[in-house]
Design a protein around this nucleic acid. Structure first.
Lengths: 330, 330
DNA sequence: TTGTAAGCGTTATCAC
DNA sequence: GTGATAACGCTTACAA
């Protein structure tokens, strides 16, 4: 039988309310009483039951965290950022992997609501906007990383996807490239759309015509990048440079070029996005856009917690800047 | 105001118990009643409050998961394994990073108990054995990954650290190496002791004298490996091969050799442990011992859940085999 | 097949 | 300063 607040009260010869006061350090308690209660708490190894507390306070001091997949090297840093911010504020994190599957994400969303988490951080979210809106309407606080949804209970933590990709593309153009391809990510992802937009904008600004054949969409993994690059290489006039939706695809692209007997960056320059750990270790090391993943996770959780505390989102959107990291692939 | 089981009952013109029966699909309910209740549940968007349920059932259907650090490439796969097994069984995962710090780990342990998780999975655990024992004594179920503690409520999920390292060392010996160094991990880690033991055993079995100067202890990161290797390289008679506690140290060692103008594996052969994603992408790609991280995480959670269900650990220890993956570094 | 009442372990209300 | 007592939203006897 676990020891309860009642046991402590009885043992200390006080009421439960007094014990509660001692635990939470709120209401007034005579010092002598406090010490006596404290002693009993330690003697009995009493631990307050957070479940019972949550039932009455209506707060679980827990945050849900839904990510696409921890094994995907983009997410661990986000997770760590969220966890650190949560810890600082006394919150616990409930983790779920959604595999970029709207159905799984929605299922988890419902689960998190049942579990009464005080707020939810979503990274790699692919659920229908309507579903997110509905959850928010029902009183749920959310922070979206790399996705924007305009709603008074939804916070968005963004990186300047379009600008950063435009910069990366311009960088290639300045290096003399004209035949620049784009490896497109999943169309459900807002980030994918925005990055692609940045690519097109840079082309436009430099007066380089957009060629649909230079855009290949694939799954945002190494295999996807490899496959996409093979397609591009088979073109009558293959590109001399490639901008990828993310590092994983970029790495796959490098592999495909090398498999085909080409050299990177001499034959084909490759530039990625995210700056995952692996990026520094490929051959050649990947030139990419660094996304402040940890910081974004931290900020998402910290801002969400603030939001919950004050009862409104302010600010509604936080923007981070991506930064080109020039290494060997472009 | 959130809608409760009472609201549903009132609206459907039945008792709360009947609604409860419909939700949980237990007791007998007339089909017509069931449908009526179900309709009201949907109309009202009713979601049972898991906190209230947990308070009375005394089960949270939640597992705690304490790891050293999600950013350390060893852990994401473990996390994913745990999460997948938990999901299958209807459990939720509460995540915590302990940074291999006993103090933080113990703090989390207490927190998880307050939160009433049904069981706890620990990977990269560094808490005092006494602390774990005490938690177990107080009725807490635990699964330890890569650490053995003999206790009726503690499950251990192990990889054959000693054997696998002995194999790796023997592999080097068979390749003709005689001056083989060892990069030792954190002495608090049981895995570190066991792997080191395997190294010594292999040496002994092949009649190669053990040289203390060939053992360097460092933090189990890339920097640690680099530092340790530099020390070894400065020896009057430096080793021609190195076995590392983990891949991160091995990667650092490779870097140190190359920095010093040496070639891997020609001048110094390097062999790691774990087989993290990065291992396949270093130059040269790392020869290492593959540890079934995902499987160990999955098994830990699955076995823990079984254990909770039947009320006893059976079996008490699960052993996995490491397997040498020969790539380019040895 | 359905309902009533008690109680899970806390905190909140309001009196003393 | 301190203590009864009523919630919180649900499940579990036990009745009906």
């Amino acid at each position: 039988m676990p020891v309860t607040i009642r046991d402590v009260a009885r043992q200390a010869g006080v009421s439960v309310k007094t014990v509660s006061r001692v635990i939470n350090g709120d209401g007034p308690v005579r010092e002598a009483t406090r010490q006596r209660v404290q002693a009993v708490i330690e003697a009995l190894h009493y631990r307050p039951n957070a479940v019972a507390r949550s039932l009455v306070t209506r707060r679980t001091m827990a945050l849900g965290l839904l990510i696409a997949d921890v094994i995907n090297p983009f997410f661990p840093e986000v997770v760590r950022g969220v966890e650190d911010a949560a810890k600082v504020a006394g919150y616990t994190v409930l983790l779920g992997n959604t595999d970029e599957d709207p159905v799984q994400e929605e299922r988890y969303l419902a689960l998190m609501q049942e579990r009464q988490v005080d707020g939810l951080v979503l990274s790699g979210s692919r659920a229908e906007e309507e579903v997110l809106r509905q959850a928010a309407d029902s009183g749920f606080w959310m922070a979206l990383i790399n996705r924007a949804v305009h709603h008074p209970r939804i916070l968005s933590i963004l990186v300047d996807n379009a600008d950063a990709t435009a910069q990366a593309t311009s960088y290639l153009i300045q290096k003399g490239h004209r035949r620049i391809a784009y490896l497109l990510g999943p169309s459900r992802a807002e980030a994918a759309r925005l990055r692609f937009e940045g690519y097109r904008r840079a082309l436009r600004e430099h007066g380089i015509p957009f060629r649909p054949a230079y855009v290949v969409q694939e799954i945002p993994r190494i295999e996807g990048g490899r496959k996409a690059m093979r397609t591009l290489l088979a073109l009558p006039s293959p590109p001399t440079a490639v901008v990828a939706y993310n590092d994983l695809m970029a790495i796959g692209a490098i592999e495909a070029v090398q498999e085909a007997g080409g050299r990177v960056p001499d034959d084909v320059a490759v530039i990625g996005f995210d700056d995952i750990l692996l990026a520094a270790y490929t051959i050649p090391p990947l030139t990419t856009v660094r996304v402040p993943k940890y910081e974004m996770g931290y900020k998402a959780a910290a801002a969400l917690i603030d939001t919950i505390k004050i009862g409104r989102t302010s600010p509604r959107v936080v923007r981070f800047k991506g930064k080109i990291v020039v290494r060997g692939s472009a």
